[in-house]
């Protein structure tokens, strides 16, 4: 491979990583917080067409309504869907254990600290294992990879890539696509319904690229899982009194 080719290849990879980072940032941002003025503006302008191409037709009221009203409306939908009691909890811990802030939450947080990030909440009631934050982490890893490539640090880039793929497979793949499906089915507003649907599709696409077919089938089963399956734990032995 010539140097030129390699350079072109790298440039392509950088571009791709940046694009992926952009998508995941968008998805993470959508799920993590209510839309604000700036985000709405982006949706109406820059993001409108690409989103439409990705299958997300933005609803009319979002595109044309007075922005204060639209934002208020979206905030209410967001709260009803993800925050208020009885909502679809966006936390891995709740999904896995039924309780907030349990072990999965610490586990996910560990991923962040290992990669050099620190979780800081903006509002109360937020935990590191929020779907949006986790997608944001994927985005951050993509852009970190791009940065490494730009620096020419292939080793670090590879490390980041491995971390991202492992994170996706171990922490995200097993539940987020299924969660997106159910959340989309009860979303009151078409914007969230479509964005959740998009998130599910993007993730699945991503997972199909990095997971071998067998693992993918497993993930597919996991996402359909009900009831939650227990894996045997190494603590089995102790618990039996020996």
């Amino acid at each position: 491979m010539t140097l030129e080719m390699k350079k072109a290849e790298t440039a392509k990879m950088i571009e791709e990583n940046r694009a992926q980072a952009g998508i995941f940032t968008l998805l993470g941002r959508t799920l993590e917080y209510e839309a604000d003025e700036a985000f709405l503006e982006l949706l109406r302008t820059t993001l409108r067409e690409p989103l439409a191409e990705a299958g997300v037709e933005l609803p009319d009221d979002l595109l044309h309504g007075p922005s204060a009203e639209v934002l208020e409306h979206l905030a209410v939908e967001f709260t009803g869907l993800f925050v208020a009691p009885g909502a679809i909890s966006p936390y891995a811990s709740v999904f896995e254990t039924g309780a907030m802030a349990q072990e999965p939450s610490s586990r996910v947080n560990h991923w962040y600290t290992e990669a050099g990030f620190e979780f800081r909440r903006m509002l109360s009631g937020e935990f590191p294992d929020h779907v949006g934050t986790m997608l944001g982490f994927v985005a951050a890893l993509y852009s970190a990879e791009a940065d490494c490539l730009e620096r020419g640090d292939d080793v670090a880039a590879e490390e980041t890539k491995v971390r991202r793929e492992r994170f996706l497979l171990e922490e995200v793949g097993g539940w987020v696509p299924g969660w997106c499906r159910i959340a989309a089915s009860v979303a009151g507003h078409p914007f969230y319904e479509r964005m959740l649907d998009l998130t599910g599709r993007v993730l699945w696409e991503e997972l199909s690229m990095i997971a071998p077919p067998r693992r993918l089938r497993e993930l597919s089963d996991l996402n359909a899982r009900r009831p939650a399956r227990l894996e045997s734990s190494p603590e089995f032995r102790k618990a039996s009194g020996l």
Partner: peptide
């Protein structure tokens, strides 16, 4: 609606 976010 209630399945997710519940204690199994």
């Amino acid at each position: 609606e209630w399945a997710l976010g519940g204690d199994p």
